[in-house]
Structure formats: C-alpha cells, structure tokens
C-alpha cells in the first residue's frame, strides 16, 4: 500500500530528465508499463539524450513485440552507452526477432563480452550462430558454460546440435549421453540421444530413449519420426509406417517425415499410398520429385519417371545447399 502510494506520488516529485527516467524504471519494475512510458516520454522531452529513458522505451516496445519500433531506440541507447550490457542484449534480441542474424550476432557478441555470466545472452548468440552455420563459433560460446552448475538444459541441447552440425559427432554423442543423465525427465534431451544413437547405427539402443521421450511427452512428434526412421533403416516397414504416420499427423507439413513415410510405404509395396503421401509435401523440394521419379519407374511409367527426375534436377539446381542433418532443423 505504501509503495503504491509512493509510486503514485512520484510523478509530482520528478523535476529532471534523470528523475523521470528513474521513475519510469521503477514503474516498469512495478509492471505499470503505460505509466512507465509516460515517465520516459517526459524524461526525453527534457533531455532527448537521456539513456535510461531511451533504453526504457526501447524495452517497452520490445516487450510488446513491437520490434521495428524498439530497434531505433535501442540503437540510440547502445550509441549513447556502448558499455551497457542490457541495451546490447536487447538490441541483439530485437534484431533476432527482425531476422537480421548478422547484426544480431555482432551485438550479442559484445553483450556476452560485457556479461559473460549471462546465460540467456550466450544461448541467444549460440542459436544465431547455429542459424548462420557458424558451428565452431557456437561451440566456443557454449563449451565454457556447459559444465557449470546449475546445469542448463538448453545449453546442452544447443551444444549437442553445434557439435553434430560441425561434424564432431563423437563429442555430440558423448554430450547427449551426459545430458540424458543430467536431465532424465527431458523429452528433448532423450530425443537427441535417440537421434545420436540412430545416427551411430545403434538402432536397437536408439528406441529406448525415443520411447521414453514419448512417455514424457506423448505429443512430441520428433521421437515418433525418429522411431519411424529407425524402423525404416531396419527395413521393418509396418512399424516404420505406423510411427511416421503418427509423426506426420503432428507435423503435417514436415517434408522429412513425409519423405520417410513415402519411402517406407514404397518399400512395403504400397506404391499408390507412397504417391499420395508425396502429394502432401512441398512440391518445391527436389527430393520429393526424386522420390516420385522412383515410384513412377516402379509403376512402369518411365515417361513420368523421367519427367519427375528432370524436375528434381531443376529444383536441385535452384537450391543446391545440402541439408544439415541435425535434430533441431527437422
């Protein structure tokens, strides 16, 4: 009651830009954003260069998901006070939301230098490095904190992905095993371990963590898909079809899942069903048409097979980058 009265009275007491900015900050803390914005605006009227007010308005826009509006305030804030961790971090996070990873990475790097202990800044930077395929850099950012208690699940997940994508598969596998011991109740971690085991060709072992992940989160589609792929590799097509169908129900637009389902169906002789599954995929993916060409050939329609093969090549030439085999990108 007393605090509330104090905050109510404060606008009457504020005289200077700094005082209005400080008031805004306190109102923010009290979760009164509209009043905080008014206080910051008053501050800027008195001094357009008042850092706390600029940063405060930037934060308010960020909190409201108004990232385009937040950006100029936060850029001004980091110009005004380059040493500010908070402004850097917020600007980096804003640029992430605006899908400008290169600029985001630059600011997040500086934020991590300013405050190396800030896990969220580190994780956000690592996620952007992964997005831009700078896997080694992501490892450098995450490795120093992965062994620091209290253990952070997301740090583990990001580092496993970075190791995997950087072709350091042995380290990715070892970390997945460690993560599974540290976070035995995490469906995400268990899915990663299952992925690593199936990648290592240890199909029977892979099934256990994947099934456990599904016990923990029955709607989690990734373990369903991975179980489907394991059975597909084992040439157990009925089981593969069952799991991949479940995964496809939860991820109806996922090309990887539908392609695997189509393969399982065609291998089990259900060519028509395999064609129907492919009809549900993005028709811009070269792999879809490659699979289509094989199905048409098996149906004895060589003209259509050739047509699909040609289209596959055309599409591939437009999107020549090889897909990276990681769990998160699925």
């Amino acid at each position: 009651m007393r605090l509330s009265f104090f905050l109510f009275a404060l606008p009457l007491l504020a005289q200077s830009a700094a005082e209005y900015a400080a008031l805004g900050a306190r109102l923010l803390e009290a979760n009164r954003p509209a009043e905080a914005q008014a206080a910051f605006a008053n501050s800027l009227r008195l001094n357009p260069a008042e850092f706390e007010a600029i940063a405060g308005i930037g934060f308010l826009h960020f909190a409201r998901n108004q990232f385009a509006h937040a950006r100029p305030y936060l850029e001004k804030a980091v110009t005004a006070r380059p040493q500010s961790f908070q402004a850097r971090f917020l600007l980096g996070a804003t640029l992430v939301q605006l899908q400008q990873p290169k600029a985001a990475i630059a600011h997040l790097r500086l934020a991590v230098i300013r405050n190396p202990a800030h896990q969220d800044a580190r994780k956000l930077l690592a996620s952007q490095l992964l997005e831009t395929r700078q896997y080694r850099d992501a490892i450098t950012i995450l490795q120093p904190v992965v062994e620091t208690p209290p253990f952070d699940e997301e740090v583990h997940l990001l580092l496993i992905e970075a190791r995997q994508a950087a072709a350091d598969t042995a380290a990715a596998f070892a970390l997945a095993q460690k993560a599974a011991a540290r976070f035995p109740g995490s469906a995400q971690v268990l899915a990663w371990l299952g992925f690593q085991l199936q990648f290592a060709g240890r199909y029977e072992e892979a099934k256990l963590p994947l099934q456990r992940a599904l016990e923990l989160d029955p709607a989690f589609p990734i373990p369903m898909q991975l179980l489907g792929e394991v059975f597909l590799k084992e040439e157990n097509y009925p089981e593969a079809i069952q799991w991949l169908t479940r995964a496809a129900r939860n991820m109806p637009d996922d090309t990887e899942t539908l392609l695997a389902l189509s393969r399982a169906q065609s291998e089990s002789g259900a060519i028509q069903q395999a064609l129907e599954t492919l009809a549900r995929t993005a028709q811009t993916d070269a792999r879809v048409h490659l699979q289509l060409s094989r199905l048409y050939f098996r149906l004895g329609d060589e003209a259509k097979a050739r047509q699909s093969a040609d289209l596959s090549v055309q599409l591939r030439d437009k999107q020549p980058a090889a897909p990276v085999s990681t769990l998160r990108r699925r």
């Binding site: 792999r287 490659l290 060589e302």
Partner: peptide, 16 residues
C-alpha cells in the same frame, strides 16, 4: 536408355 536417376544410382539420397 539412361535410367540412373529413377533407379537410385545417379545422386545421393538428398538428390545431390
């Protein structure tokens, strides 16, 4: 008749 693409012998499994 050249048939590598649709017999699975032309590219890797990603069509590369």
């Amino acid at each position: 008749t050249e048939r590598a693409t649709y017999t699975g012998l032309a590219y890797d499994e990603n069509g590369l």
